[in-house]
C-alpha cells in the first residue's frame, strides 16, 4: 500500500489534546448545571418574576407590572414601614458580623499559636461541634439560658453581680447571641485556615527585624488574613440578613435594639408569606432582600479580587 509523504512544514493539528474541550467535560458538568438550573435558578427566577405580577380581585395575575414595588416603596416609612425593618436587619447583621469577627479572630489566633500542633485538630473539631446539633433546638436552649429566670440571670444574681435580671430575651441582643452561636464555628474555621496558610517565615522575619508582638500582628498577620476577614464578613452578613429563627425565638419577633423596637426584614417576609394574602408582593419583598445580599456578595468578591 502506498502512502503519500507529507511535505514538512504543513500545518497539523492533533485531533485530541488533554486540554481540549472533550465530550467528557460536557458530560461531567451537565448534571450539576442542569440540576442547579432547574432546582435552584428556576425557582429563584420564578420568585423574582412573581414579584412583578399584579393582584386583581385577590388573585395573582401573571404579567409584568411594578405595582408591587411601588406599593412597597409607598409603605416604606409608613404603615408597613419596610424601611425600618430593613434598617433593623442591616443594623443587626452588621453589628453581629463585626462582633463575630472581633471575637472569633483572637480565638483562631489562640488556636493557631498557643495550642500544641497535635491538639489543634481536636480543638478545631470541638469548635465546629455546634454545627452537629439542630439550629432550632440550640436556639431553644439559649432561651433557657437567657431567660429572666434562666441560667445566666440565676448565676448573675447568685454572684450578686446584678440585682435585677438582665433582660436579653426579646431584644436584638438575643438575636445576636443566637446568630453568633450559628456563625462562630464557621468564622473560626475560615480564620484558622487563613492563619494556618500564612507563611510562617514572614513572622519569623518580622520578629528578627525587631517587631514587637503587637507590631507583628498588626502589620504582618492582619493584612495577610484580609481575604479570610472578607469571606467571614460576606458570609456573616448574608446569613444574618437571611436568618429568621433567631430573630423570632430569641428576639421575640420585634426585638428591641438601639434603633428601636422593629422587626427584622426577614421576619416581615416570613409573616407576610404565612398570611398568604399577597404572594406577588411578598415575592417582591424577598427579591429586595436578595438584591441586598447580591450587593454584599459582589462587593465582597470585588474586594478579594483587588487583593490578589
Amino acid at each position: 500500500m502506498t502512502k503519500q509523504i507529507s511535505i514538512p512544514g504543513k500545518r497539523s493539528r492533533i485531533r485530541w489534546l488533554p486540554q481540549d474541550n472533550s465530550l467528557l467535560k460536557y458530560i461531567c458538568l451537565a448534571p450539576a448545571v442542569i440540576y442547579d438550573s432547574i432546582f435552584f435558578l428556576l425557582p429563584l427566577v420564578f420568585l423574582v418574576w412573581i414579584g412583578f405580577w399584579s393582584v386583581e380581585n385577590y388573585r395573582a395575575v401573571p404579567g409584568f407590572s411594578l405595582a408591587n414595588y411601588s406599593d412597597i416603596f409607598s409603605q416604606f416609612f409608613v404603615k408597613s414601614r419596610y424601611a425600618y425593618a430593613i434598617a433593623q436587619s442591616l443594623w443587626v447583621a452588621i453589628t453581629t458580623t463585626a462582633l463575630g469577627i472581633l471575637l472569633c479572630y483572637p480565638f483562631a489566633m489562640a488556636l493557631m499559636f498557643l495550642v500544641p500542633e497535635r491538639l489543634q485538630r481536636l480543638l478545631l473539631v470541638l469548635a465546629i461541634t455546634p454545627f452537629w446539633t439542630s439550629y432550632i433546638l440550640r436556639l431553644y436552649a439559649w432561651q433557657t439560658i437567657l431567660n429572666n429566670n434562666g441560667l445566666l440571670n440565676t448565676l448573675l444574681i447568685q454572684l450578686k453581680w446584678v440585682e435585677q435580671p438582665v433582660t436579653i430575651m426579646f431584644t436584638q441582643w438575643g438575636t445576636r447571641i443566637g446568630l453568633l452561636h450559628y456563625l462562630a464555628p464557621i468564622i473560626i474555621l475560615i480564620l484558622y485556615l487563613v492563619l494556618r496558610n500564612t507563611d510562617r517565615s514572614l513572622l519569623g522575619a518580622a520578629r528578627n527585624l525587631g517587631a514587637t508582638q503587637w507590631q507583628t500582628f498588626w502589620r504582618v498577620i492582619l493584612p495577610l488574613s484580609k481575604p479570610g476577614i472578607v469571606y467571614s464578613a460576606v458570609f456573616g452578613l448574608i446569613i444574618s440578613l437571611g436568618d429568621v429563627l433567631s430573630g423570632i425565638i430569641l428576639g421575640g419577633g420585634t426585638g428591641q435594639s438601639v434603633l428601636g423596637k422593629f422587626p427584622l426584614f426577614s421576619t416581615v417576609i416570613l409573616n407576610e408569606y404565612a398570611a398568604s394574602t399577597n404572594l406577588p408582593r411578598t415575592s417582591a419583598l424577598a427579591t429586595i432582600l436578595i438584591g441586598i445580599m447580591m450587593i454584599i456578595l459582589v462587593s465582597g468578591l470585588k474586594l478579594t479580587e483587588s487583593e490578589s
Binding site: 507529507s6 512544514g9 504543513k10 500545518r11 497539523s12 493539528r13 492533533i14 485531533r15 485530541w16 488533554p18
Partner: peptide, 17 residues
C-alpha cells in the same frame, strides 16, 4: 502549531496521547 512527527515511518501527528 505546525510540524509533524513520525514513529517508525508512521505519521503519529494526529494520534491522541
Amino acid at each position: 502549531t505546525s510540524g509533524e512527527i513520525r514513529l517508525q515511518g508512521k505519521d503519529i501527528t494526529h494520534l491522541p496521547v
